[in-house]
Design a binder for these strands. Structure first.
Length: 165
DNA sequence: GCCAACGTTGGC
DNA sequence: GCCAACGTTGGC
């Protein structure tokens, strides 16, 4: 169907979170959250420019036992300024971020499901189909990562996902 | 707790 | 603009 404006294909992402800071339990309980505290320019660029409403998100526990993708979320609000940069009591406080030209951005995501069974990093590494996955590359530290459609489907399948996408 | 791999900062 | 020092991330 022809429409004014561009239609963007849905993309997929992986967001890392340390469960001690913000884990899947809290996400499930709250249902929705804003993804604040990203203080890396590469990740910022993705949040500001590329992550769109309707995109799918793999929720990954980093610095955890076990390391695993633990659930699925969807983006419900695209990039907007991360206001925690201007909160002096926030651990993400960054007074250098100019309110008229914000340095840091965040998005809102909504919980879709927690996997029946976490898909562990070990399990991911055993999947030859996923050997190219950014998460599994040596030295990969980016906390907001693109995921291909093929990787997305594979991980959801491993997690026993019932989500319809 | 270790340390590899980055990213940032700041002197020059 | 270079680069050494330092800080952080995050798997192991």
């Amino acid at each position: 169907m022809a429409r004014a404006g561009k239609t963007t294909k849905r993309r997929y992402w992986l967001f890392k979170s340390e469960p001690d800071v913000y884990g899947i339990d809290r996400f499930v309980a709250e249902g929705r959250t804003f993804w604040d505290g990203i203080r890396n320019y590469q990740a910022r660029n993705l949040l500001r420019d590329d992550v769109q409403v309707g995109d799918g998100v793999l929720f990954y526990h980093s610095n955890a036992k076990p390391l695993a993708v633990v659930g699925v979320a969807k983006v419900v609000r695209a990039g907007y300024p991360d206001h925690t940069a201007w909160e002096s009591d926030s651990k993400y406080h960054d007074p250098k971020s100019d309110p008229d030209d914000p340095t840091w951005f965040m998005v809102d995501i909504e919980c879709v499901e927690r996997f029946e069974r976490p898909v562990t990093r070990e399990e991911l590494m055993g999947e030859s189909d996923l050997s190219e996955m950014m998460l599994l590359q040596r030295g990969s530290r980016l906390s907001i990562q693109p995921v291909t459609a093929k990787e997305w489907r594979r991980v959801l399948k491993l997690g026993g996902s019932s989500a319809s996408w």
